[in-house]
C-alpha cells in the first residue's frame, strides 16, 4: 500500500510542478474540487493510484467527468450488450436503446454531463436493505453480491419488488438502482459485462476506465445532482442549474 500512496503523492506533485497546464485544464482541475485527483485521471494515471487508505479495493467503472462529452455512446453500448437479441439462433448484441442502459448520462444546464453507474460499494447498502431472509444454503438475500463477478445481482424469483434497495441506493449512494415501474424489482445494476465493460470499451473520449478504486476517492457514491453541482461551480462559477429533477 505504501507504494500506492507514493505513486499518488508523486503524481500529484508532478502535476503541481509540471506546469504547462492550460487554463482549461486548470479550470477542470479546480472544478473537481481537490484538483489533484482528476488531474491524475487527465494525465492517464489510473488504477492503484486512486487508492488512499482503508477499504479493500473494488474494480468498477470510473468516470473522468472532464473528458465526458455527454454523447451517450456508453449507454447505447451497455444496452446493446445487456439486452442481446437472438438472430437465427445466435445471441448477438442488441441495437442499444439507451433507455435500458445500466450506466446513465445525466445532462444538466449549464453543460455538465454526469455518467452515473453502480459504485460497486463494498458495504452494499442495497443488499443490507433487502428484507428477504438469507437463503440458509447460500446465505443470499434476493439481492446479493456475486462473489465470482463481484457485481450485485438480483434473484427475481425471490425479490418482493419492495424497492428497499433502490431507496437505500438513492439515500446513501448514487441512486443508480431503479425499480421497474411495473414490478418494483431493481434494474440498472452494472454487470461489468463479464469483466469487459462495453461502456469503457466504446467511449470515444476515454472518459471511462475499469479500475480499482477506494470509497474515499472524490465523488465516490454521490448522486449525479451533487456531482453536477460541484462540477458546475468549478467550471462555470455557478451552482445553479436546471434539469435537476
Amino acid at each position: 500500500m505504501e507504494s500506492t500512496l507514493d505513486s499518488h503523492t508523486k503524481s500529484t506533485d508532478c502535476v503541481r510542478d509540471g506546469m504547462n497546464l492550460t487554463r482549461r485544464e486548470f479550470i477542470k482541475g479546480v472544478g473537481l474540487g481537490g484538483g489533484a485527483v482528476v488531474l491524475l485521471g487527465q494525465f492517464g494515471i489510473h488504477g492503484a493510484a486512486w487508492a488512499l487508505s482503508g477499504d479493500p479495493l473494488l474494480k468498477m467503472v470510473l468516470v473522468d467527468y472532464a473528458k465526458c462529452t455527454g454523447c451517450q455512446t456508453c449507454e447505447a453500448a451497455c444496452s446493446a450488450q445487456n439486452r442481446p437479441v437472438t438472430v437465427a439462433g445466435r445471441e448477438l448484441p442488441g441495437l442499444g436503446n439507451p433507455r435500458f442502459a445500466n450506466i446513465r448520462v445525466h445532462r444538466f444546464n449549464p453543460d455538465v454531463d454526469v455518467p452515473s453507474v453502480c459504485a460497486m460499494c463494498s458495504d452494499t447498502p442495497c443488499v443490507k436493505a433487502c428484507p428477504v431472509d438469507p437463503d440458509p444454503r447460500t446465505g443470499r438475500r434476493a439481492l446479493y453480491r456475486d462473489q465470482a463477478t463481484r457485481t450485485i445481482r438480483n434473484d427475481p424469483g425471490r425479490c418482493l419488488g419492495c424497492r428497499s434497495c433502490a431507496r437505500a441506493c438513492a439515500t446513501e449512494r448514487t441512486g443508480v438502482i431503479t425499480p421497474n415501474p411495473a414490478t418494483g424489482k431493481p434494474e440498472r445494476i452494472c454487470t461489468l459485462c463479464g469483466g469487459d465493460p462495453q461502456c469503457v470499451r466504446r467511449c470515444p473520449f476515454g472518459a471511462l476506465s475499469f479500475v480499482e478504486v477506494r470509497r474515499d476517492r472524490k465523488f465516490y457514491g454521490l448522486g449525479p445532482e451533487q456531482i453536477a453541482a460541484e462540477l458546475a461551480k468549478g467550471w462555470y462559477g455557478t451552482a445553479e442549474f436546471g434539469g435537476a429533477q
Binding site: T69, G70, Q72, T73, A76, D111, P204, F205, Y236
Partner: peptide, 10 residues
C-alpha cells in the same frame, strides 16, 4: 472548458 458531443458522436 468542456467539449460536447451529440448523440453517439466521436
Amino acid at each position: 472548458v468542456k467539449d460536447i458531443a451529440c448523440y453517439c458522436c466521436p
